[in-house]
Design a protein around this nucleic acid. Structure first.
Length: 893
RNA sequence: GGGUUGGUAGUCUAGUCCGGUUAUGACACCUCCUUGACAUGGAGGAGGCCGGCGGUUCAAAUCCGCCCCAACCCA
């Protein structure tokens, strides 16, 4: 039985260890009914460092969902994975070991990366367990594992066979430092110092009207050799004469067309701009729109190509200085000044990105925008509003999905190319996973040309191309060679019930998962998605290393119980950002303590053996309490089903604290009968269960202290409501017990509420008169039907003489103190005369005539207003304010 | 620069979709009170021009427009 103070430092690690050791949350090996399987597609954290507070926040919300559904209706599949196949993990290994991936052969480097990741993952796992997550630790995966590589490569081949992938030479964003194509997501803006250069271009073959030269402003003179056109805005009258002429590029001498295009920013520099292949996104659009030449001046490692003539081999930054100097010597550099501008850089290394034309694999998405939009609509969104982000993302898509990455670490493309004719040769599904760099292609000769040598693809897949398969990884998706079709080990969990994740990656993780799984299975992979907000610091600012406001989970959990952190995390409306606030944690501690102390009192008021419902039935108050609890639990259930964590938590907390502890427990102290004992135990057990998803540890501790051993016995208790019979597993853990279903108890809600109002009024009376709460009151009269509650009221409030008048009118006078208008009817009916009516009422210039009110020249019917009344009592004693109940107390002090 | 979401007492938040005149709860603050668990408790109090400016309406925290601030996404 609970005694003394609750000690989370001992209890929490104890239960966490036990949950893991006993495999409390293991998903069954045997087949599960699809109707009762509840699956959660948890976000696999990128292995790039330590666990941060955002992970803790998101994980707790997922865990509350998992714990609720495990008790409520389901076998819960709650897996966990690590995303360790991407650039982030590669960078982590480089940092940790102080090495460069370029210095190692791919396999060797991958091995090192895996070792480093393993250490971080072990630490991560330990911390996740320290948060008390009810994850099934038998169902974990690493995205770099052979099993996941197989899934990822199968996915690539399946999409290829469906004709949804193509290889194309196209401009791609390129990091010259990392020497890889990167996606737009991996870039960010950086404010950098630079120079603007005014460079004079000569016009070739001048005709009479056109000027013979013009000026171009650029920050990147080293791109002059890549210049393929010059653009002028169609509304630029000043330079209109130049359109249609040809310009001569200084130093390099080649001629380029001068073209009108409205994408020119007339405000920048001279308003005349050169197009180079490629300096920025605009250049790519122009290149494609106007079918321009391709002149690549900068190579993969940012060195100048042969196109740059004498500058070939120089690094682009060296070339820039040399070209500027030579322009100056040639008299073509008209001006040069310092500026600061935003540069698109690679987020991992801070290097300015280039655009290179390379051969890359793409997944086609643009052709199916409408279908993918519908897939988004088919999911239930918590909260609804987050769907808009998905919608806008899909509607705004402009490129197919680039999945090639030139990295050392990652999952290889399972493909070779014929050395002669470049025919693509896919791996056999049965052979996956393969690494083309070390494995042979499945053919001896090219099916097209018969050549016998092949070139392996040495790119790896974008990490999103793999992490977008988590539902299939979880379901054990694979190729069944015998049946010649895809199969799943656990078909019952797919489509998965919930995809929880942050709103920052709706356009990546969620979108990509939806489309890939949809293409593979023909089904939208999620029944619902639950989008959590970001964690902010106590000042509502985002946490970042540079600001130094990052909250370390370890630091918090040294000071507060995990249950307090879980309480804090459930204080958010789903989708809203949540500031880290210590007071939120302190409030959690208070509730934990209250629950503990109340449990001690229940234990002492209703000692074992576990009481049965008395023969004669329950007392009025006890029935009322259980009926109210019924209602409350229905609310809590609905709130949790709708992922309204904050409301579920607050409503339950308030009912427990105010109604159960403040009101009911105080009354139960005065009574020692079986009815109270039964009610205390029954209500208490239900509170523990209802709090269990959030306060996972303290409820487990109390459950084992008070109920776990009695589970078998109580099932035999004749009068225990059948619905509340604990599940068999409940001897092991409250988290395996059944969620409390309503008893359907009948009680007089109004009478009980009135009785509680009376008690509250008397308590207030004592407090205001500075009386101790156990002071005796001489006489109390109540004008309401609270029959059946008399003894409880007098017991807890120590009333010597208590009389109730269920039917008779109270000996009080009511005085009309004013008029309340029913605006819903008066407003529409009298429109702008309402102002006059209000003014007249305020100056008491009105007349009451039976049911009618004459005011400001209009007549209001009875249902259009109500009388504001004050109650007055002239007799002996004092009239108390007890909601609508008239309570008169007489007391000689 | 564009989009999405949010802005409510010192702090966090409910209410906003569907307009109705006393704006919810908690923390902190002030006053009082030891009831057989909890003073880390209980009772009460004070504290808000609902981000700003306009508009619609008899009536706006709520609807509309513009602006400011923040987070996220995209340029």
């Amino acid at each position: 039985m609970p005694s003394g103070e609750y000690d989370p430092d001992t209890a929490e690690p104890h239960w966490q260890r036990r949950w893991v050791d006993e495999e409390t949350y293991a998903y069954p090996d045997e087949p599960v009914d699809p109707n009762t399987a509840f699956s959660i597609d948890t976000p696999p954290p990128t292995v790039s460092g330590s666990l941060h507070w955002g992970h803790v926040y998101g994980s707790i919300l997922q865990d509350v969902v998992a714990r609720f559904h495990r008790m409520y209706d389901s076998e819960v599949f709650y897996p966990f994975g690590y995303d360790d196949n991407g650039i982030a993990s590669e960078r982590l290994a480089e940092r940790e070991l102080d090495i460069r991936h370029q210095d190692y052969e791919r396999r060797e480097f991958q091995k090192k990366t895996r070792e480093v990741c393993q250490q971080y993952e072990d630490e991560f796992t330990e911390k996740m367990q320290g948060v008390g997550l009810s994850i099934d630790w038998n169902n974990t995966y690493r995205t770099i594992s052979p099993e996941v590589q197989r899934v990822s490569q199968l996915s690539f081949i399946d999409l290829y066979e469906q004709g949804r992938e193509y290889r194309q030479e196209a401009p791609a964003i390129w990091c010259p430092e990392c020497e890889t194509a990167i996606s737009q997501v991996e870039t960010e803006d950086d404010e950098q110092d630079s120079h603007f250069h005014d460079i004079e271009f000569a016009v070739a073959d001048i005709d009479a009207d056109a000027p013979d030269a013009f000026t171009i402003s650029t920050t990147r003179p080293e791109l002059l050799p890549a210049c393929v056109a010059v653009f002028i805005h169609p509304e630029d009258d000043e330079n209109a004469d130049l359109v249609g002429e040809r310009a001569e590029v200084p130093l390099f001498g080649h001629e380029v067309p001068i073209i009108a295009d409205d994408r020119v920013d007339m405000e920048t520099g001279s308003g005349i701009v050169m197009c180079c292949t490629f300096g920025d996104q605009n250049d790519i659009e122009w290149y494609q729109a106007h079918d321009l030449d391709l002149r690549v001046a900068i190579d993969e490692s940012a060195h100048m190509t042969a196109v740059a003539d004498e500058y070939e081999g120089l690094h682009s930054s060296e070339a820039r200085e040399a070209i500027v100097e030579d322009l100056d010597d040639a008299g073509a550099l008209l001006d040069r000044w310092e500026i600061s501008h935003t540069v698109n850089v690679h987020e991992r290394c801070g290097t300015g990105v280039e655009f290179l034309v390379t051969e890359q694999w793409y997944i086609e998405v643009l052709d199916k925008r409408e279908e993918y939009l519908q897939a988004g609509r088919d999911m239930e969104w918590f909260p609804d509003k987050m769907f808009t982000r998905y919608e806008h993302w899909v509607e705004g898509l402009q490129w197919d999905w680039l999945i090639s990455r030139q990295r050392s670490s990652g999952i290889p493309f399972p493909v070779w190319y014929c050395e002669e004719c470049d025919t693509e040769v896919m791996a056999e599904k049965a052979d996956l996973p393969v690494d083309p760099l070390s494995d042979d292609p499945p053919l001896d000769a090219c099916p097209e040309c018969g050549a016998e040598s092949f070139v392996p693809e040495d790119d790896v897949l974008d990490t999103w191309a793999t992490s977008s398969l988590t539902p299939l990884i979880n379901a054990g998706w694979d190729w069944d060679a015998e049946a010649d079709e895809f199969s799943m080990d656990r078909p019952e969990i797919y489509p998965m019930n919930v995809r929880p994740q942050g709103h920052d990656i709706i356009s990546f993780w969620l979108f990509h998962t939806v489309i890939k799984c949809y293409e593979h299975t023909g089904e939208v992979p999620f029944e619902s998605t639950m989008i959590n907000g970001m964690v902010l610091d106590e000042n509502r600012e985002k946490m970042s290393k540079s600001k130094g406001n990052v909250v370390q989970p370890d630091t918090v959990l040294e000071e507060y119980p995990v249950d307090a952190a879980r309480y804090w995390a459930t204080g958010s409306a789903i989708g809203d950002d949540l500031p880290y606030q210590e007071k939120g944690l302190r409030a959690g501690e208070k509730l934990i303590r209250k629950l503990w102390n109340a449990s001690k009192l229940v234990e002492s008021l209703a000692p074992e053996p576990f009481p049965d419902e008395p023969e004669g039935g329950l007392r009025e108050l006890d029935r009322w309490l259980l009926a109210e609890l019924d209602r409350e639990l229905e609310h809590t259930t609905a709130r949790l089903e709708n992922r309204e964590f904050s409301k579920a938590r607050e409503e339950l907390r308030s009912f427990f604290w105010n109604t159960f502890c403040d009101d009911y427990l105080e009354i139960a102290k005065q009574r020692g009968d079986d009815s109270a004992a039964y009610t205390l135990r029954t209500a208490h057990r239900r509170f523990l269960k209802a709090f269990a998803p959030v306060l996972a540890h303290v409820t487990e501790e109390l459950w084992h202290d008070m109920y776990a051993d009695d589970v078998g016995a109580s099932e035999n208790a004749a009068d225990a409501p059948a619905d509340d019979a604990p599940a068999d597993d409940a001897t092991d853990s409250i988290h395996l017990a059944d969620w409390p279903e309503p008893f359907g108890i009948d009680a007089d809600h109004d009478a009980g509420t009135a009785a509680m109002s009376v008690v509250g009024a008397l308590r207030r009376y004592k407090s205001e008169n500075q009386l101790p709460l156990n002071a005796e009151l001489d006489s109390v009269e109540v004008y309401a039907d609270v029959r059946g509650f008399e003894d409880d009221i007098t017991g807890v409030m120590h009333v010597a003489e208590f009389r109730i008048h269920p039917d008779s009118d109270a000996p009080i006078e009511t005085v009309v103190t004013g008029i309340d208008l029913d605006y819903a009817t008066v407003g529409p009916k009298h429109g702008n005369r309402v102002g006059d009516i209000e003014a007249a009422l305020a100056s008491e210039d009105y007349e009451l005539d039976d049911d009618e009110l004459h005011v400001a020249g209009v007549t209001l019917e009875a249902d259009e207003f109500s009388l504001k009344k004050a109650r007055q009592y002239a007799g002996e004693g004092e009239l108390l304010d007890a909601d609508d109940v008239v309570v008169i107390v007489r007391n000689v002090e």
